[in-house]
């Protein structure tokens, strides 16, 4: 079935593009797309673009994880911490991150930190709210059992709440790395000298539709690989959990 599900759209694409109904400059054939990719590779830009974009996503994503995991755990666990953070987390979450992009550019310029920051801003609040939810969903029996075994609060946080929420935290990370790519492309489309988003915008200027499509496919492929890797990581880190 996955073969049909994946093959059918590709076949449809091939039929339309080879039929000549649209000019190939706008609707390139699969072979042309691959040739465009080969060209990008031989020009020596493809690897650099992939590394630049992946690096930005990686740093933004890691920074968001490092900030959101402790804050989410604290907010989910302590009323006072929720009171402290929820005005920011609750309200800023509804402001579109795209609207912050110009501000980030004004404050931080056009260099690497600005792009990493946009990725970070894009996902950090989603991460946090999702982790708060994960903590809230820990069954009461688990916490009460820990209490009757004699835990203190720090031990409860580190040795019960954290491991109990870990599977959901890892799920959250997997869901939000897709978001990280969204925000990266947004940042690169606006200002960059390198990266897959930059390559897409530049190709658009020269109506290199085949290159645009190739770069989109590369992003999709990286997404698939990351998802697979994170799933494996989740299974390795939480072998005790029910994995679908």
């Amino acid at each position: 079935m996955p073969l049909i599900g994946g093959g059918a759209p590709l076949l449809l694409w091939a039929i339309i593009s080879y039929s000549g109904a649209f000019a190939n400059a706008f609707f390139p054939t699969p072979v042309q797309i691959l040739q465009a990719g080969a060209k990008l590779l031989s020009d020596g830009v493809l690897i650099g673009d992939i590394l630049a974009s992946s690096g930005r996503v990686l740093f933004g994503f890691l920074a968001a994880a490092i900030v959101s995991i402790p804050i989410g755990l604290l907010m989910g666990t302590f009323h006072t911490m929720e009171g402290l953070f929820s005005p920011v987390v609750g309200s800023v979450r509804y402001m579109p991150v795209a609207a912050f992009v110009p501000l980030v550019m004004i404050w931080f310029g056009y260099d690497e930190p600005a792009k990493v920051l946009i990725v970070f801003l894009g996902i950090v609040l989603y991460n946090t709210t999702m982790i708060v939810d994960a903590v809230r969903k820990i069954p009461n029996e688990i916490l009460n059992a820990a209490y009757t075994l004699g835990v203190s609060r720090p031990i409860l946080l580190f040795q019960v709440i954290f491991p109990a929420a870990l599977p959901s935290i890892l799920d959250t990370m997997r869901t939000n790395i897709a978001g990280a790519w969204n925000f990266l492309i947004l940042a690169e489309v606006i200002a960059a000298k390198q990266g897959l988003g930059f390559r897409i915008i530049q190709s658009q200027r020269y109506v290199d539709t085949d290159k645009v499509l190739f770069c989109i496919c590369v992003i999709g492929l990286i997404g698939l690989l990351t998802d697979y890797a994170l799933r494996k990581l989740a299974i390795a880190l939480t072998p005790w959990s029910e994995h679908s």
Binding site: T77, F78, T80, V135, R136, Y147, R153, L156
Partner: peptide, 8 residues
């Protein structure tokens, strides 16, 4: 910073 647990 009274440590009041949400879940408790």
């Amino acid at each position: 910073l009274s440590l009041d647990f949400v879940n408790n």
